[in-house]
């Protein structure tokens, strides 16, 4: 495998949109490196250019200048088809609002990323079921996606994002439509993907509450992309959440996180050291 430290390198990236009477610079020239196995949060106010940056990273929006290099592959030097193939194989996507192929059941919807990289149904379905089991929503497999609650949809979409075992999970405001219970559940799932599955998480959010969870932060404001002053390792709050996530009584984990939030980190667990193992060097 690739031993590079960074999974994504953004070099001199610029994006402007040409409108009839003016040109909007959505992203001003910037360079970034997203470390492998990081929990990267891109934050900034609405309309700041976060989504444009994310679209450039996912290979959906060709930048006006500069390049996006994913594991030494320059995304925009690839043909459209190759780039589509790259997305299917390397990225797991979670959106704020979930979209589904309405005619397929949950299991087959989770199969879609596998289908797109060439799997046949009988090959894809066991893997999709496995992914649903990981997120603990395998009981929804035969349902139509439209009957699920928003929280369930978001969890299924997590299964869909990780079914092809991509290196990078990209989450665009994944908690934006959720209440805090479901939001925290999704956040702990994202964290577990990073810690347990060695995924690199790139999350876009305007919710500053989640910032402490990150290991790497990028802020976008009026098209200016800057790396935040990086702390070493996880913040104390993150450790707290991780610790709860990996507490022995995992049925209570979500409740614990909620309690944790409401009581403002008063409860202490004895097994906090586990989280420290995951700290960045």
């Amino acid at each position: 495998m690739n031993n590079q430290k960074n999974v994504i390198e953004i070099v001199d990236l610029e994006k402007s949109f040409v409108l009839p009477h003016t040109t909007v610079k959505a992203i001003k020239k910037c360079s970034l490196s997203i470390p492998k196995n990081s929990f990267t949060i891109i934050h900034g106010p609405s309309g700041s250019g976060k989504s444009t940056l994310l679209d450039a990273i996912t290979g959906l929006e060709e930048p006006t200048a500069g390049s996006v290099i994913f594991n030494s592959v320059n995304l925009y030097s690839l043909s459209n088809d190759k780039r589509a193939n790259f997305r299917a194989n390397n990225l797991g996507l979670v959106y704020q609002t979930n979209y589904w192929v309405a005619s397929l059941n949950v299991l087959d919807n989770v199969c879609v990323p596998l289908f797109l990289s060439g799997y046949l149904p009988h090959e894809a379905r066991p893997l999709a079921l496995e992914a649903l089991k990981k997120i603990n929503v395998d009981h929804l497999a035969k349902q139509g996606p439209d009957v699920l609650s928003i929280g369930e949809q978001q969890r299924v979409s997590m299964a869909r994002a990780l079914v092809s075992d991509p290196q990078v999970i990209i989450a665009d405001e994944p908690t934006g439509s959720l209440d805090t219970t479901n939001g925290d559940a999704i956040m702990s799932l994202l964290l577990s993907l990073k810690t347990d599955f060695n995924k690199t998480i790139i999350m876009v959010t305007h919710n500053l509450e989640y910032l402490p969870m990150s290991t790497y932060r990028i802020s976008v404001k009026d098209g200016v992309v800057t790396e935040d002053e990086q702390e070493h390792g996880l913040s104390p709050e993150t450790k707290e959440k991780l610790k709860h996530y990996m507490s022995d009584d995992d049925d209570k984990q979500i409740q614990d996180i909620l309690n944790n939030r409401s009581s403002n980190s008063t409860s202490k667990s004895t097994s906090g050291s586990k989280a420290e193992d995951k700290d960045q060097k």
Binding site: T58, R87, A88, V112
Partner: peptide, 8 residues
């Protein structure tokens, strides 16, 4: 959705 997930 299909395109963003990697359909050509």
């Amino acid at each position: 959705l299909l395109v963003s997930l990697g359909a050509r």
